[in-house]
Design a protein around this nucleic acid. Structure first.
Lengths: 216, 216, 216, 216
DNA sequence: CATGAATGAGCTTTCATTCAT
DNA sequence: CATGAATGAAAGCTCATTCAT
């Protein structure tokens, strides 16, 4: 044993080193401006080695998604584990998503843009599927919470949990996207706090999911 | 007069020619892949001339926003002019936004991406402000409709019209972004129709804006 | 004994495996486009192992010559074994060379290009000498046939057999080179069949080697 | 006028500067080893400029053919202009071809290799046709001389001049190819002078073209 | 002896931008 | 004001070869 095992570990370590370096560079400069040379240097590896582990620059970029989605899922599951009423859990998941955006704005950005059609062609099928799976895992947490809420009688019965999850995801993305790009502008020119607005929007949406008697 | 006037007209014409060519090329290839050479050729002007009218490639790209936003505004105002009840108007405006995305996916894309931080540095202040103004004009249509709804008693009084407009904008962007990137995937792998889901989401949101007695 | 012997056999087998794989890849893609990775994979050996058996990519390439020349020699000797009159044998050897080109165009190509100065520096002395020896062996068949023809009185006495062999080789290479590159062009643009022309040229040359009274 | 004219001249000059630099580098290193960087530097121009004038590295390489063929044609026509008997003219043209090889070995090499299938795809149609035309022009000189010989009664009537020209071309290429690659080897190992052999071969071939009564 | 991960120089080509005319 | 030739940095990717295990 021993040898093969260690080799496997080393390979995994190297992969991590590359991802770490890639994160740094991509997050600093964005996909187009980041150069493989820089990433190689940051990883203290040769450029060629990068291509041993990742098919292309884009492949490496999208591979970061896995990391981001793993974090997000963990954050969601942590909220779920608090064993609060379903509606409160869902509310907190919403804030957690925003929290994720604040803590890891760059992962969030990849999450939003990684699907852009243009990238797909340069990314290995494997990486693509991996990210889709993990993305689904996050959605499933949300769906699960909603389903629990339905069972508990706080959420409407007439909506499919997975559909609600997708809907909430879309809505949140939109609002956060606005915050990412426009927060300062709206605050400065119109004295509108997009962060507060997002909270309000989330409450409204949550409310529309509740059963009639439970509306707050 | 005469001469100066004609010169002004010619200048404006040339500007339009460039924008027209840019639209064609950018929409065909996307910002990174589009080349100034191609745009110059399509505009039947020299490459140098492009830089007489636009500060940079990105500047030209973002300048297209004005066109897009003008179209969108016209579409919104058309709906407004139908003189329907405020809630119906707002509902139709929502669908119109989606319609805009379907008809002009490329303008929509610029709308979504043009704010990305990375571009800003390369874009002239002037262009940036122009687009912000026109963007606001669109929001104002929505805000106006909502305000009318409040006056008519169909919409809640406790929400600021402009904030509602922003909120609806964010939500719509998020859902449409999902459709743009994930529609096929969700339909294929999960038999979920994102388009229908978007409609449902819009209805839910609309509902949460209504006064209690008017809920449908 | 046993072990050492088996090792020797294994080594030879591996060498053959590499040559076989190299043939496939080089013939498919040509020297510049062929990659050592591919050859290694085709040989089901590691890339490093290739360098245990061959000094360089070029060395491996030129090593294929041996195979080609072995085939050519066999083809020549087969003609020789038919025990025809010397002039008929020579004539058939000429056509056989062309046949070799048609059947093994890739070996022929190596034959023609392997001597290019540029390769020499990267090829081991050993391989180089091996190919020269085998090349000479082919020439010797031709020389032998010509010598027999002199003895039989059909060929001129005033020419050195080995020189004639070289001459015929050069002439054939030239004509075949033309066919390889230009056949289609001449056929298409000028209705000239280079293949037929080559046959005619060969007859003319043969004729000029005959004794006066034997001219056809 | 003036300006446009001068620009045209400058452009032509620049083209020549590139070709001159390319000749130097390609001839020193061969097509694969030559780098566009080097050529640009030698031409005292930027790399980008090279691509303004030539589509690709290969295009530039093949463009040198025109120069080579122009020289060759001039050399042939000079011989023709000496107004010697047709057979003597043809004999001298043969030696002139060899002379061309000795004086411009690198042009000769391009002549031999430029048709290789592999290049074609990267070379502009224009350049390709240009070289074919000039190549034909050289052949036509030879054909013309042969035709004159037929008229003068020194050459056989039963051969088509253009076919003879092609044949002689092929034969010469083959012999010269041998000289280029093997001269030293044959001289050193077998005391055979390929140059002398080529001359002998040419005489033999010439002889076989003569009418019976004129054989020497 | 065999491996195969790592190397890193090296390559062609592209393109936004400038500036002399 | 318009031109378009020239620039030259930049960049992704390949691949022959090496060498520690």
């Amino acid at each position: 044993m021993g040898t093969a095992e260690r080799k496997g570990r080393e390979k995994e370590q190297r992969r991590r080193a590359i991802l770490k370096a890639a994160r740094k560079i991509f997050f600093e400069k964005g996909l187009p401006a980041a150069a493989m040379d820089e990433i190689a240097e940051a990883a203290e590896l040769s450029k060629g080695t990068l291509y041993l582990y990742f098919k292309s620059k884009e492949d490496l970029y999208v591979s970061l998604l896995e990391e981001g989605l793993a974090i997000l899922r963990r954050m969601f599951e942590e909220v779920e584990a608090r064993s609060l009423p379903a509606d409160e859990t869902l509310r907190q998941i919403g804030f957690t998503y925003y929290e994720f955006f604040k803590q890891y704005p760059d992962y969030f950005k990849i999450l939003m843009f990684a699907d852009a059609r243009e990238l797909h062609s340069q990314v290995s099928e494997e990486v693509l599927q991996g990210s889709e799976q993990r993305s689904l895992a996050c959605l499933e947490v949300v769906a699960r919470v909603f389903a629990r809420g339905v069972a508990e009688g706080v959420f409407r019965k007439d909506l499919l949990p997975i559909e609600v999850a997708i809907m909430l995801w879309g809505i949140s993305n939109g609002m956060i996207g606005l915050i990412a790009n426009k927060a300062e502008h709206f605050m400065h020119d119109h004295q509108i706090n997009l962060e507060a607005l997002m909270a309000k929007s989330w409450e409204l949406t949550m409310n529309s999911l509740r059963t009639a008697q439970k509306k707050k």
